[in-house]
Design a protein around this nucleic acid. Sequence first.
DNA 1: CCGATTCCGCACCGATCGATCCGAAACTGC
DNA 2: GCAGTTTCGGATCGATCGGTGCGGAATCGG
Lengths: 207, 207
Amino acid sequence: MDSQRSAPVGRPRSFDPDEALEKAMRVFWQNGYEGASLPDLTEAMGISRTSMYAVFGNKEELFRQALARYADGPASYGAEAVAEPTARGVATVFLHGAVRSATLPGYPTGCLSLRASLIGGEDGQGIRELLGAWRDETSAMLTNRLRRAVDEGDLPAETDSALLARYLMTIGNGVAVQAAGGAGRADLQVIVDAVLQSWPPVLSTDR
Amino acid sequence: MDSQRSAPVGRPRSFDPDEALEKAMRVFWQNGYEGASLPDLTEAMGISRTSMYAVFGNKEELFRQALARYADGPASYGAEAVAEPTARGVATVFLHGAVRSATLPGYPTGCLSLRASLIGGEDGQGIRELLGAWRDETSAMLTNRLRRAVDEGDLPAETDSALLARYLMTIGNGVAVQAAGGAGRADLQVIVDAVLQSWPPVLSTDR
DNA sequence: CCGATTCCGCACCGATCGATCCGAAACTGC
DNA sequence: GCAGTTTCGGATCGATCGGTGCGGAATCGG
């Protein structure tokens, strides 16, 4: 309804919140949640401490919005993957997206949520819950999509779709860690191609 | 030479350094390097702040020794793997070891070095170098072993042993992340078995 | 020009970090 | 018993953390 406030009088905002959020995302991506200090963030965003609190509330809320931007941007390959018409396409887009996202030129390597989640401390509990929820959401999205593939006959009837989703996320996580450790895009591309070569994997529970 | 000091007179040590190091390792494993505070560590070790500094020097040195204990204990599967007579055995022991180590009952889930490495901050630089060195050491160990397998005809002649080692570490890292996220041992076991089902993987650089 | 509004720089808060220092208690060999 | 040595709890240090409050500069509508 009211896209404009009641009385927008006074000094206008001198910076672009979207651009500031982009910078904040990169800092969190690079340093993790607790590793990114307020001076780090505000300096990168080009705004003062005061403005950050006025616009975003606090550090945790800033991270929430940065994560949302991350999920819609560099990490949108999950949503892209489930839109593929075949299960093989889902796996291909997902793993290729993981490689591309973890080795984006001009961005930190690896995965933002991974760098931010593997932290201790009691204050980071809300952050861990947030990241856990996002991870579970991705997992559920993949699981549902793969189950549909089973129903459609695109995957063997005995396929455990949840386990197969976990399989994909395991490879994706490994790719992210490797990228954070300095692995190049070409190497990781070859690795996920090798994984995709044996699709679908034989996830036999019995041994 | 002199296994005993010159004049061991005075109050004897009232705690077992080895046992204390074990406790410290668990705390680091659970909370990461920066996430483990001095009170956390000393309380778990059952010793005072003073004693910790007297015995280990500082927090970073304590972590070094805890990591060494980790590498010789729960994470010794890397060394065990390269002792296998076949490349398939190497991969099997490595991946099964990764699963077992990441889901040890009574221990934190996941991988100590992963939890400790993915942190920012400027003070953690020495820690990151230490963990990077250990990772590179493992990588080199696997690479050399796989190269030997190529020389012995145990793997195809055109195999890129370094890339194949990276392939194994990628899966292992993914397993560690999944375990840290709550994945159970049985699921991860099935996943790595599926990976091993297509051994050796087709790591074709050309597409 | 003027009041209103919003920005920013800066000082400040309590809490926690790793690290150090000190006095008292505990145990050794003589 | 007596010195010598080491342990321990606790106070303390400087630095940094996330978060807040304040005053001045800048920019709007009127």
